[in-house]
Amino acid sequence: MATDVMTAQAPAEGLHGVATDFAADKQAFPVPWGKVMMWIFLLSDTFIFSCFLTGYMNVRISTTAKWANPSAVFSLAIGQTEVPLLLIAIMTMVLITSSGTMAMAVNFGYRRNRSVTTALMLVTAGLGACFVGMQAFEWSKLILIEGVRPWGSALGPPQFGAVFFMVTGFHGLHVSAGVVYLCVVAMRVWNGFYDRKGTYETVEVVGLYWHFVDLVWVFIFALFYLW
C-alpha cells in the first residue's frame, strides 16, 4: 500500500492493530478474486450441507421406528459372502484418490505443464464420473432389490429412504457439476487459454471446489454408513 494516500494513521497495538492492518490493504486477501469468491461460496455451501446433515440427525433421533442397519443394507455379495460396506469403501477410495490427482493437477498447473495438467484433470473428472456411476448402481440396488423408496421402506422408518436419497443425491449433483466444471477447465488448459492469460489459478479454484466435495463426502460417509 502506498503511503501517500495513508495520512496521519497512528500505529496501533494489539487487537486494534490487527484490525487496522487487515483493513488498511487495498485487497483484504492477497489472492485472486476468483479464489476469494470460491472460498465464500464454499462457506455458503458448507451451511447448506450442515443444514442437511443436522436435519438428518434430527429426523433420525426423533423418529420412533428403528433405523435401518447400515452394515446390512449397504453390503455387497461376493460369491456367497456378504461383505458389509464394500461398495461404499470402494466409492470412498475412488473419491479420495481423485482429490490426490486434483492436487497434482494444481501442482503441474503452477509449473505451466499444460499436457500433464490436462491429463490429471481428466483423470480426476473420470474418477468423479466413476463415483457417480457407482452411486447410481447403489441407488438402483436399493430401489429395485431392497425396495427402498423415499416415502417408505421395509428396512426402517420412511425417513430412512427419504433422507438418504436426498442427501446423497444432493452430494451426487455436486460431484456431477464438478465433473462438468473440471472438463470445461481442462479443455481451456489444453487449448492454452491460461497460458495466454498468464496464470493457472483457475485450476486451483476448481481444486478448492473438488476438495470441498470430497470433504463433505467424508461427513456423509461417517454419518450415514458408520452411524
Binding site: L43, S44, F47, I48, S50, C51, W151, A162
Partner: peptide, 25 residues
Amino acid sequence: GLLAFPALLVSAVMMTLDSTVGTSF
C-alpha cells in the same frame, strides 16, 4: 444472506419433497 439462505433452501427442498414425492421430513 449467504449463510442464512442455505437453511431456507434446505427446508424448501425438504418440504417440496414432502408435498410432491410423499416423504415425511
